[in-house]
Write a protein that binds this DNA or RNA. Structure first.
Lengths: 266, 266
DNA sequence: ATAATAGTGTCTTTGAGACACTATTCG
DNA sequence: CGAATAGTGTCTCAAAGACACTATTAT
């Protein structure tokens, strides 16, 4: 690339047509299982397949704003509220979209448990789908639970969205280790057991309740007590739990490390 | 309409004109100090300012391939060899380039100590510049050392490259904690002291030589002995060091954590 | 000789995890 | 009552870091 070519940039049409989109890996926890927000494709390519919500970045629209717009549109929520939204990575293999060159800037979102998205005006069907039902390669969470496929659900995600989802899951697992973002999956007040359920759903591993409890309370700024307790004990018995809200820590120190990842080291 | 008909009828120009570029934060260690590869801009905007090497993604070119091409062009090296190259993040603020909408997919590279880049055929001046000389906000490495500004060097990087560089530095600091990538800054064989110098340059902190030594050898797969030793001791005395090469670990377990980041937690 | 460095030994403190145990609440 | 759960106590082991020390080499 010579300087002259670079200066020719004044003419936007001098460059190969590239479309820039955002895609969102939005995760939530339902009934103790990790779910991802998907939309059913209404036209080719990959007609009828599930895909991550996403779309073109509009002129004068920031990448994050575009991702937030897509996320809110498909969830039917009006503001980001307690959502967590961060950039994940960009995907630009030349053949990833058969129509044209598309570079997608993927984002990762954590959402509290939400009602099912209403079928929007854009006629796109959106749904929270259990991650385990998608049969991802290397999905750590799919070891224990049996994979239940929803009727009419093709397991193959459109485009390279299976890879994007896998990358998002891995990022999410890591983020829970050293940030307090697990609290973004819960309501504003939560019990330690609810927080533990978040970790177990995302990591796909069961954790020792007692040690987890002590560990969470020992990390400065992770959670702070509200002073209140739940109205009732658990559905199968047990004392009422104390309630907590997110503290002011942005990083967990020391971190909550996932159980033995020895096998992932080499 | 069949899939083929649909694709044939598809008009790529229906989308807003966006240019996609790659920029590279290439880091190396020279004389114990962290350096970044920069190019001097030869025309407006930001004429005469330093910028990260980068350029447009070519048709049918993968994002990583584009970043590798830019990296090799400006370093004057022919193959990636022992370079480390990973995607960093994408930057797409609507006004980040005054000419048009540009989304840049930034990459992060670690390089061993290389000769100065020859002024290439493209007449762009490229140089390894000490990171401390750039006066970045929140540059952890700039606390101890005095900032020496090179003659004729504007400290302000072009576009949003200061932010990209800052993000790259933070990523690099974190990567050294839990991956063996520090070895990518050295030659194929290195001493523990050389490895420690890498950590000290990137983290901008001095480490305890004895504890570092024991820690590195205790992490499985981080380094493996070559059996050889250096020909001479250090320039100011001391015994000869044993030589090591990179081991087969992809993650360090347990990790080498940076000294007390308590202040960064809230 | 002096100073600097490579590498090792040892002690203290922190934290992770296993296990046990009590108190509370639901069915 | 019996089972499940919240929360705490305690013990063991791994690891981080401070400090000390020896051996080796350059000047």
């Amino acid at each position: 690339m010579t300087e002259e070519e670079y200066l020719a940039a004044y003419d936007p049409r001098a460059f190969p047509a590239v479309a820039v989109t955002v895609d969102v890996v939005a995760l939530t926890i339902r009934d103790g299982a990790l779910h991802v927000l998907l939309v059913r494709r209404g036209g080719p390519p990959f007609e009828g397949a599930w895909a991550l919500p996403g779309g073109f970045v509009q002129p004068d629209e920031d990448l994050r704003a575009a991702a937030a717009r897509e996320l809110l549109e498909e969830t039917g929520v009006t503001t980001l509220g307690r959502f967590h939204l961060e950039q994940l990575a960009s995907y630009g293999a030349p053949d990833r979209d058969p129509r044209m060159r598309v570079v997608s800037v993927a984002h990762l979102a954590f959402a509290p448990d939400l009602p099912d998205p209403a079928a929007g005006s854009d006629a796109r069907e959106a749904a929270w789908v259990p991650v385990d039902a998608l049969g991802l390669p290397d999905a750590a969470g799919s070891r224990d639970r049996p994979v239940r496929q929803r009727p009419g659900t093709s397991r193959r995600l459109a485009f390279d969205h299976a890879r994007i989802l896998a990358d998002g899951l891995e990022r999410a697992r890591g983020k829970l280790e050293y940030t307090p973002l697990a609290t973004r999956f819960t309501g504003p007040e939560f019990t330690i057991a609810e927080l533990r359920a978040v970790y177990e759903a995302v990591w796909g591993d069961s954790l020792h309740a007692g040690n987890f409890h002590r560990k969470v309370l020992s990390v400065p700024g992770f959670v702070e007590s509200t002073g209140a307790t739940t109205e009732r004990g658990g559905t199968r018995g047990g004392p009422r739990s104390k309630l907590y809200r997110a503290g002011d820590a942005r990083l967990l120190h020391p971190a909550l490390l996932r159980p033995s990842r020895e096998e992932a080291v080499r």
